[in-house]
Design a protein around this nucleic acid. Sequence first.
DNA 1: CTGTTAGCGCGTTCAC
DNA 2: GTGAACGCGCTAACAG
Lengths: 335, 335
Amino acid sequence: MTDEMRKRSTLREVAELAGVSMGTASKALNDRQHVRASTRVKVREAAAALSFTPNEAARSLIGGQTGTVGLITGDLEGRFSLPILMGAEDAFGAGRVSVLLCDARGDTIREKYHLDALLRRNVDGIIVVGSRTNPRPRLSGSLPVPVVYAYAPSESESDVSVVPDDTGAGALAAEHLLATGRRRIAHISGDPDYTAAHERADGIVAVLEQQGLSLVQGRPLFGAWSEHWGRTAVTRLLEAGDEFDGLVCGSDQIARGALDALRAGGRNVPRDVGVIGVDNWEPMTIGAFPMLTSVDLNLERLGREAAKLLFTSMAGPATAGIHRVHGRVVTREST
Amino acid sequence: MTDEMRKRSTLREVAELAGVSMGTASKALNDRQHVRASTRVKVREAAAALSFTPNEAARSLIGGQTGTVGLITGDLEGRFSLPILMGAEDAFGAGRVSVLLCDARGDTIREKYHLDALLRRNVDGIIVVGSRTNPRPRLSGSLPVPVVYAYAPSESESDVSVVPDDTGAGALAAEHLLATGRRRIAHISGDPDYTAAHERADGIVAVLEQQGLSLVQGRPLFGAWSEHWGRTAVTRLLEAGDEFDGLVCGSDQIARGALDALRAGGRNVPRDVGVIGVDNWEPMTIGAFPMLTSVDLNLERLGREAAKLLFTSMAGPATAGIHRVHGRVVTREST
DNA sequence: CTGTTAGCGCGTTCAC
DNA sequence: GTGAACGCGCTAACAG
């Protein structure tokens, strides 16, 4: 661009400017012993004058570690990857570790491609983020670095995986509705191809059964993770005439549609029906009218957990298997 | 973890296994000349057997380039950063360049911190993504690598910036409403601290004036980028009794709130009022009822543009100043 | 065509 | 307390 294309300065230049040898300069800058205080100051000043930044490539060539981890995601929107990224930065301590983010777009070929790029760059570890919680095939080949699977667990039990506790999330939602006095509870969820849809439903049903209750219509209504489906499903429920006073929606988007249809059907939320969603996706929950109660899956925590597990895996073996991160209910106006 | 902790193999090992020297092995693997075909095959096989991946750190130590760019974002949600990330991957060719993503969370201290980390890692270039289109201070210091500012332009004209064409977006929205026969057009927008709010309004007003028209109520209603504000503002408009048949909303979220309030006020969309938003954020637009027409700011294109500009900056000076990326109207049911 | 050598920038021995 | 020498893994230039 302009004047800013200052060439990067090297340790040798710093040493020359300070009038010492490279070895001394190195020690001075890295806070090592056997350097006189006055020399240290001289070197530091020289480094500052040249705005010297050590070359990580050279450094990692020696140490074998790069201070870099790879994050391969299949999650286009970043709804899951970004909290995980932020969690990773938190867990590692910002600056100490940098994150290489690759978007595989759910494509195995691209995934392999990015994996190669990450290995060439000698990442110290890899986090693989899925776009749904269905188990996924492990990364192919035997890798020279630890891998942690986040959101979508690996099919292999010997891998380390961190997933949201979807069964628990369903249970939390059901318990919350029961606690607010609802007894006739319906459940609308998304695409039945998603493991999460079934697990959340299982969690709900288990809680209801403990109270001798069952779902309105006897089963969940599966469809799609969309507002449209939320409207359609509620309309059907209303037409069927099965009265209900509590509604668990498989996602906040479904819940938004449900709120619309309930209002259109003359039902007041929360007076006539309590509604709870899952995800606690704020643009959806805060924007809703009334504001939507939702189960937060604690994805940032999931991200931090994944980062911590990767961190321990980098030192030695970490506990293999599936780690579950619990959610929490965020209460708003709809219940 | 388990057996997979295979040590990384080096070129020397490949060379030994293939029974050649390192130099030859290097040439063979890098498709360089002066290697017999049979030798090349032998080396390749050895490399495959050891699942050898070249060490980029060593390679970049020689070439001075790391094949890595930094992306510093202040955009928490990733609404802008991720399209830009994907655009960058597209533009560079996936795998050739990897992206280090840092989240500065709008904090100057963190930004400086991450900048340092990126420089230590010898990135070939940096893209800075803002969370709003207001001009922002340039990265401090004279940097040894090119920088491109995306979404939020640099305050300095001598930097390279890429921003959405907000004035144009407003104009597109107004033109679209006029084209569908609306004449009495109101405009609800977000936080007036955002440059984007004013520019979009300017674009709308300019188009209306060309037709001898002006905004209902004579000026835009500024507030917040929320559904709540959309509802409030429309309610006020309806109460004021100023009739309108077209409504430009500064964001899709505002538009969602507006749709709700219009329905509550007995107005049919699109029959009585045509509504158009900005962002084309699909969870919002597709989920709306009726589905929302919106101006797409073409952020992926903005991302690709930023990546291309960075790419050219890496070779030589690129055109300084602010580059604007035009939006487009995505027509749905609300107009 | 293939092998040998030097050196990228840095940290870490060792001698001094 | 300081400096010189070696090597991390790789490529480039030259020698054979």
